[in-house]
Computed example of a mutant assay.
Amino acid sequence: MGDTSDKVAVVTGGSRGIGRAVSLLLAERGYRVCLSYVANETAAAEVLAAIEARGGRGVAVQCDVAEEKDVVALFEAANRLGRLAALVNNAGIVDVTCRVDAMSAQRLQRMMATNVIGSLLCTREAVRRMSTRHGGRGGAIVNLSSIAAKLGGAGQYVDYAASKGAIDSFTIGLAREVADEGIRVNAVSPGVIDTEIHASGGNPDRARALAPDIPMKRAGRPEEIAAPIAWLLSEEASYMTGTIIDAAGGR
């Protein structure tokens, strides 16, 4: 996968679920990991302990990616670890099942602020550090989309699906914008993954309930999403940019 010993990876939402799996895998591959978390300091500390137990190095930063000042502080912390080479825009939220005609403006603003604006703000800071245009040495960005961007989320959370559709467009546009500046930009689009995000949307059994409707007849594991993310960040994917990889069990 190449030498990553002097490289730093920022993983947003890195304390639980897919973000946790990504943080651990990148640490195993030699990255110094700067992970963000919103509120669960205990979970973040556990990930750091696991990284250090494997001989890695990392830092956890409390950060709401929808807040510009928090994002700036996150990347300042990453600066202290070394040269930024990778960003995984993983932080995201869902909400309770709801039709569009019952959604409040507050819900919509929160959804877009976290899932879309948060990724844009983090990417802005990453490009400022990675781009050869700004004196950087290049890098790679992976955005977390969702198969919901294609399926639409009708009757459940069209707002979430729309936010991930925006991430798909952002991935393609940014990839073309910085392709000649040493930065590759790709996305992974998970299907139903067995993580705590379903409970945060009021449906902790959602992954199990949807399993029969998935061609592979099971929900995915966080590690099964971390693997393609790590691959896209690696030199093995050196000619890939603007690509969105589905990891959805056939959905």
Rank of each mutant, 00 (worst) to 15 (best):
Q62C: 10
E46K: 11
L81N: 11
R128H: 13
N89D: 13
V65T: 09
E28P: 04
M130V: 02
R83A: 15
G56P: 01
A43W: 01
S36I: 07
G14L: 00
A66M: 04
Q62R: 15
V94C: 14
A53D: 08
R32N: 09
V96W: 14
L87I: 13
E68W: 15
R83W: 15
T132Q: 10
C34W: 01
L25V: 02
N40G: 06
A113N: 12
T12Y: 03
E76H: 14
A43C: 06
R54Y: 03
A73Q: 10
L48P: 03
D64A: 12
G118R: 03
G17Y: 00
I51F: 04
A91H: 11
Y31A: 07
A102G: 11
V72C: 07
E52R: 13
N143F: 06
K69I: 10
C122G: 00
G58D: 01
S23H: 04
R129I: 03
R57N: 09
M112L: 15
G56W: 04
I141S: 00
A60W: 01
L48S: 05
D64G: 05
L81Q: 06
T132G: 15
V72G: 07
A102N: 12
V59Y: 05
R32M: 11
T123A: 09
I51C: 04
S23M: 01
D101S: 12
A73I: 10
R128C: 10
I93F: 08
R29Q: 15
R54F: 06
S23L: 04
D101G: 08
L48V: 07
V33Q: 07
D101R: 09
S36Y: 00
R80D: 14
